[in-house]
């Protein structure tokens, strides 16, 4: 997949460069699940890339792969190079051994903002003690310094310092999310990976959470936001990658994608048209099973633009993997109007 915004000649090195990342799960009875196929993208410092798609499209598996947290029956291929100061060639997250990942990557170079903060925090310990433990682990601070750094870590995630001695169950959903974000930020990791950070939160809280994540991006971090919430993605993302059946089918500038001229891949168009503030019309059918993907375009069976050509896997051109991308002026995927927009 070509990159529009990130150069590949090395003048402006990305923070993370993923190339042809593939994840397969070997299951019983010889079943093989193609969870992620040939995913490529770059993520620069100070940039937010939203990875959107429905549940089961492989986006969470992608996140696990980047953190080296896949179960034992997973096989990966491709590369995911994480660049840092003084590391010209980058560290391949897929090839790195568990010790390297645990000691130098997770928390230090990649911070994870978890899906359900309530489950991420230990219920029997206060936020302060959990935060202090992480601070001690990652920075080596002790004693008086530890207390100060812990407070600073809480403040950085806008977690109120006077709530530090509370237990997770005494926190509201928003504060629990901030506590989890504070943990993710302790190591000052240049790359933040947020896996569905807003699931189950109210709209107000969703907006506040993603705005806070955006603020950390503006501080110069790279943010990979994995979500099924298109409104949240629209609010904070610089670029959008749409995943369908394990592949990135469209990678576009967020402004173009959500505004004019709109998505070019028929699936992405359908997804936007399904929003209640737009046509509110579903895409007919369901995504294919990941253990029985067609040889060609996986979206073809649900696509009104499909033709004989679609039996062949489309190559990604200018960020779109489709034989019949929507081109030119935006058709009527109008806000709150006609059903024409749902035709794709």
């Amino acid at each position: 997949m070509s990159q529009d915004t990130a150069t590949t000649d090395g003048t402006r090195r990305p923070l993370l460069r993923v190339r042809e990342l593939t994840v397969r799960f070997g299951m019983r009875h010889g079943r093989r699940i193609a969870a992620v196929s040939d995913v490529s993208f770059d993520l620069a410092a100070g940039e937010c890339l939203a990875l959107v798609g429905e549940s089961g499209c492989g986006k969470s598996v992608l996140a696990s792969a980047l953190l080296g947290l896949l179960p034992a029956n997973a096989r990966t291929d491709g590369s995911a190079l994480l660049y840092g100061p003084g590391q010209g060639t980058g560290l391949d997250l897929l090839a790195a051994d568990e010790a390297t990942l645990a000691r130098t990557v997770r928390g230090r170079r990649v911070g994870l903002v978890p899906q359900s903060p309530a489950a991420h925090l230990t219920p029997v310990r206060t936020v302060r003690s959990q935060l202090a433990e992480t601070v001690r682990e990652l920075t080596g601070a002790r004693g008086r310094e530890l207390a100060a750094v812990t407070r600073a870590a809480a403040e950085r995630a806008a977690f109120p310092v006077d709530h530090l001695d509370r237990y997770p169950h005494q926190l509201s959903g928003g504060l629990a999310q901030r506590a989890a974000t504070a943990l993710a930020l302790v190591g000052d990791a240049p790359l933040l990976l947020a896996d569905e950070p807003t699931t189950g939160l109210d709209r107000d809280l969703v907006e506040r959470t993603v705005d806070e994540l955006r603020a950390h991006t503006d501080d110069g971090r790279g943010l990979l936001l994995i979500t099924h919430d298109l409104a949240a993605a629209e609010r904070v993302a610089d670029r959008v990658a749409v995943m369908y059946a394990g592949r990135v089918v469209e990678l576009a500038d967020a402004g173009d994608f959500f505004g004019e001229p709109g998505p070019r891949h028929p699936y992405a168009r359908g997804l936007l048209a399904a929003l209640p503030e737009r046509a509110f019309t579903p895409i007919p059918g369901m995504p294919p099973e990941l253990d029985a993907l067609p040889d060609g375009c996986a979206f073809a069976p649900r696509c009104t633009r499909a033709s004989a050509e679609c039996a062949r896997l489309p190559a990604a051109e200018e960020g779109v993997a489709c034989h019949h991308p929507v081109t030119g002026a935006r058709p009527a995927v109008g806000r709150r109007e006609g059903s024409e927009g749902s035709k794709v």
Binding site: E54, H228, L230, A274, P276
Partner: peptide, 14 residues
């Protein structure tokens, strides 16, 4: 539909 994507949400509402 809190856990679901836009298309599935629209489908179930339908």
């Amino acid at each position: 539909t809190a856990m679901l994507d836009a298309s599935t949400t629209a489908a179930l509402v339908t």
